[in-house]
Design a binder for these strands. Structure first.
Length: 479
RNA sequence: GCGAAAGUAGCUCAUUUGGUAGAGCACGACCUUGCCAAGGUCGGGGUGGCCGGUUCGAGCCCGGUCUUUCGCUCCA
């Protein structure tokens, strides 16, 4: 565990040192739990995004993508349940420093009363709580807790702070004139952008069930603690797909998407044993089945993707709140119905961390003569920020000119990097540290027969090939 | 948000008890070598996280603040 923590720290340091991830606004001391992607990080992130987008849309005839706005009508979040379910009043005990959700605390007391045989008192308490919660009367809620002699289970005291509200969603003002009616939220999930466009896409695209709508975009959540590097951030990016199916078929589709999504992960060459499915024991109010795909991060097995069978909950809610029929006419069965939904939702930032965690390797290359080591990022070639580095062995004798020729040929096809400084070994190691899969060196022999050496990142092996073949070779490896 | 610890050059760290900061690596220029890091010469770079206090004098003591790490609390 200590080793894993060290490894995680090393990865974070490496990400900063080599231009992958910087703390946000660092010159102003940073902003808690917000990070910026640097020159190579943004390339890697984009490559992950492209790979997901392509495999979800281009490779499925019946899945299309959208790009909905982050700002949405406030009623969306009433319909989705976010306004009511995720603004929980909290209270802290001053002695134990424990924090409780007010409703949990009072419900526990009610259960205690109930099992003590005083069902009437229990009911009175719960009714009173519901009344006060509905009225947002925090002062009275605190008094209720104190009046009922509710104690902290840890400290055993009833020294409570005032009741405070925890809001999951960030709010802001739409329009330049501030008034209450203009308050809107930054979306806490991208899914609702898909649900509110269900009819638009279905009708304009003449989509037939089963079909899916995919989306990549930012979402924002006011987590209580946001920590563990980019694993949990207040601003993050999701890659989601909502798949609309005929009611009653959701179980099969749920299984199908579990398998499809796991295969996507494995297609990147990441070992199967580093993944596991974790079924949700306690289902959310809208789901009839749900599981996470967890990856063995250096901080333990953690969720990277969720697959949820969301039933017709969301569309039904939007039908109710918007008074627009969210129905689909199925010409096969000659029936109208609200489709059921299977959701696949992967955190892009978590996927980034997954790829880096998998790739980061410290190697001991010591020999009897001298100690030696290297840090290498073994990215899948198709995700690597840089695909090819081109080095003239020396910066004279016409070698840079030849190297530039190869640069000009390859640059339009994929990201290349040119360098003529320092010893060749040092240049190789620098590319290892940012995960470039291939390095080509132009040497004196190139001038005679037009061949170069291509060096492979993982094995450090070299082979001599015609310079004219390099572009095709690399392209084959990264596609 | 609470508790504990930490914050000195881009990175890793020194700086005996308060007397106005140093090394290695990295970086830049030049020379040399030329297929797997750490050759030579010269050079740039720090208002010691930030603000305030004590003191003749503070990186070192005190207070506050910000950030990070660890442990709690929360996570549809």
């Amino acid at each position: 565990m200590a080793n894993d923590t060290q490894r995680f720290q090393a990865i974070i340091a490496h990400c900063k040192e080599y231009g992958f991830i910087f703390p946000s606004s660092e010159i102003y001391d940073g902003l808690s739990a917000v990070y910026d992607y640097g020159q190579w990080g943004s390339e890697l992130k984009k490559n992950i995004k492209d790979y997901w987008w392509k495999s979800m849309t281009q490779l499925h005839e019946n899945i299309v993508g959208i790009d909905a706005a982050i700002f949405m009508h406030p009623t969306v979040w009433k319909a989705s349940g976010h306004v009511d379910n995720f603004s929980d009043p909290m209270i802290d005990n001053l002695d134990s420093k424990k924090r409780y959700r007010v409703d949990h605390l009072i419900e526990a007391k009610a259960e205690e009363l109930e099992s003590a045989g005083d069902a009437a008192a229990s009911k009175t308490l719960l009714d009173k709580m519901d009344e006060l919660l509905a009225a947002n009367d925090y002062e009275a809620l605190r008094e209720l807790i104190i009046a009922n002699n509710i104690k902290c289970t840890v400290s055993g005291t009833s020294k409570w702070t005032s009741v405070r509200q925890f809001n999951l969603m960030f709010s802001t003002q739409l329009g330049s004139v501030t008034d209450e009616a203009s308050e809107i939220y930054l979306r806490p999930e991208t899914a609702q952008g898909i649900f509110v466009n269900f009819l638009n896409v279905q009708k304009s695209g003449r989509m037939k069930i089963p079909f899916g709508i995919a989306q990549i975009g930012k979402a924002f959540r006011n987590e209580i603690v946001a920590r563990q590097f980019i694993f949990r951030m207040r601003e993050f990016e999701q890659m989601e797909m909502q798949f609309f199916v005929r009611p009653g078929t959701q179980k099969e589709w749920y299984e199908k998407w579990k398998e499809t999504r796991m295969n996507w992960h494995l297609s990147l060459g990441i070992p199967k044993e580093d993944y596991q499915f974790k079924p949700h024991v306690k289902l959310a109010f809208y789901a009839d089945a749900a599981c996470d795909i967890e990856y063995k991060f250096p901080i333990g097995f953690k969720e990277v993707e969720g697959i949820h069978s969301r039933t017709d909950y969301d569309l039904k809610q939007h039908q109710e709140f918007s008074r627009k029929k969210m129905q689909y006419f199925d010409s096969e069965t000659n029936q109208n119905y609200i489709p059921y939904v299977i959701e696949t939702s992967i955190g892009l930032d978590r996927m980034f961390l997954l790829i880096v965690s998998h790739a980061y390797t410290e190697e001991d290359l010591s020999t009897a003569e001298k100690p030696d080591s290297r840090v290498v990022l073994r990215f899948p070639a198709k995700l690597a920020p840089l695909k090819l580095a081109i080095f003239p062995l020396t910066k004279k004798d016409g070698l840079p000119e030849l190297a530039r020729e190869l640069m000009n040929e390859c640059m339009p096809a994929f990201r290349c990097f040119y360098e003529e400084k320092d010893a060749i070994g040092k240049r190789y190691r620098r590319q290892d540290a940012i995960g470039t899969p291939f390095c080509v060196t132009i040497d004196h022999q190139t001038k005679e027969d037009g061949t170069v050496t291509i060096r492979h990142r993982d094995t450090m092996k070299q082979e001599r090939v015609a310079m004219g073949d390099i572009k095709a070779m690399v392209q084959k490896e990264i596609s």
